[in-house]
Write a protein that binds this DNA or RNA. Structure first.
Length: 257
DNA sequence: AATATCTCCAACCGCATGATT
DNA sequence: AAATCATGCGGTTGGAGATAT
C-alpha cells in the first residue's frame, strides 16, 4: 500500500505568511534542517501549514542569501540568453543566478523583462513598417510616381492586459524576422535544419533524433544541461550578441532592447 | 477625491517523475 | 507490479499598492 496523506487539507492554513510563522519556520530549519521530509516539518515546527507551502516559503523567501530587488543588466542578459535557448526552465536559469529563485525569475520575466523586450521589438517593428508603409503610400499617391516622405500615421494598439500570454505575444516559436539595429539580441531556433538549430542541438549530444525534430517547434525541448554546458551556452551567446553577420545568415528571430 | 485600471509578486494549483509500500 | 505519496517544477491567480482618469 501507499503512504499516509501528506496533510489534512481542511485544517491547513493558506494565504500569506505572518512574521510569526516565518520566524517559526526559519528557527526550526536553522536548528534542525529540513530533515529531508517537508511533510512532517510543519507539525514539528508548530505550523498549521502544508509541507509544500513550507518548502516554497523557505526556498523563495526565508532561505539565507536570497537576493531581492532589482535585477542587474548582467542578470537580464543571462535570463534572456538562457530563455532563448532552453525556454521556461526557470529552475535551471535560477541555478545560474546565485541568490535568485526560480519563482523570482519567472515573475521578473513575466512582468518586466518580457515587456521590456516586446516594447523594444514593437518600436523596431513600428519603425520598419512605418518606413515600408510610408514609402509605398508615398509612391502610390504621388503623381509622378516618385517616393518621398509620407505623412501617414500608423496606429498600433498594444494590449495592456496583465495576463498577456507568451503565445499571444508571439514571443516564442514564431517565425519572425524583424528589423534590427543593435542592442541585446536573442537567438531563436525556429527553422528546422537551420544553422541556428544545429548549433543549439549540438549543445547536448544526448538528444534523440525525435527530440531534435520536435523541440522548439511547438513545445519546450527536452534537454538536460549540466552546469558546464550552461556556462558554455552563456559564453557562446556572448559571441552571438556581437555578431551582425551571423544574424543575417541564419534567418532567425531576434529581439532587441 | 473617487473610481478604474494596471503592476507586481507571493502563494497556490496541478502535473510529471521518482520513491515507497 | 500496482497503488499511492513526496517532491520539484512551471503555470496561474489573488490581492495590495501604484498610477491614471
Amino acid at each position: 500500500m501507499g503512504r499516509a496523506p501528506c496533510c489534512d487539507k481542511a485544517n491547513v492554513k493558506k494565504g500569506p505568511w505572518s512574521p510569526e510563522e516565518d520566524s517559526k519556520l526559519k528557527d526550526y530549519i536553522e536548528k534542525n534542517g529540513t530533515g529531508g521530509n517537508w511533510i512532517a516539518l510543519p507539525q514539528k515546527a508548530g505550523l498549521k501549514r502544508c509541507g509544500k507551502s513550507c518548502r516554497l516559503r523557505w526556498l523563495n523567501y526565508l532561505r539565507p542569501n536570497i537576493k531581492h530587488g532589482e535585477f542587474s543588466d548582467e542578470e537580464d542578459r543571462i535570463i534572456c540568453s538562457l530563455y532563448a535557448n532552453i525556454g521556461s526552465r526557470w529552475s535551471i536559469i535560477a541555478g545560474q543566478l546565485p541568490g535568485r529563485t526560480d519563482n523570482d525569475i519567472k515573475n521578473y520575466w513575466n512582468t518586466k523583462l518580457k515587456k521590456k523586450l516586446m516594447d523594444a521589438s514593437l518600436m523596431t517593428n513600428m519603425q520598419y513598417y512605418y518606413n515600408m508603409f510610408a514609402s509605398e503610400a508615398s509612391c502610390s499617391t504621388s503623381s509622378d510616381g516618385s517616393c518621398g516622405p509620407a505623412q501617414n500615421q500608423i496606429s498600433i494598439s498594444s494590449s495592456s492586459s496583465r495576463d498577456m500570454k507568451q503565445q499571444e505575444m508571439g514571443f516564442h516559436h514564431q517565425n519572425y524576422v524583424g528589423p534590427n539595429n543593435g542592442g541585446l539580441e536573442l537567438e531563436f531556433c525556429n527553422v528546422p535544419g537551420s544553422a541556428g538549430c544545429e548549433n543549439m542541438m549540438n549543445y547536448n549530444q544526448n538528444w534523440t533524433a525525435a527530440e531534435k525534430g520536435s523541440g522548439y517547434f511547438g513545445q519546450t525541448p527536452i534537454m538536460d544541461y549540466g552546469i558546464e554546458e550552461i556556462k558554455q551556452l552563456i559564453s557562446s551567446n556572448n559571441g552571438m550578441f556581437n555578431n551582425e553577420e551571423k544574424r543575417e545568415e541564419k534567418g532567425m528571430m531576434y529581439y532587441y532592447y
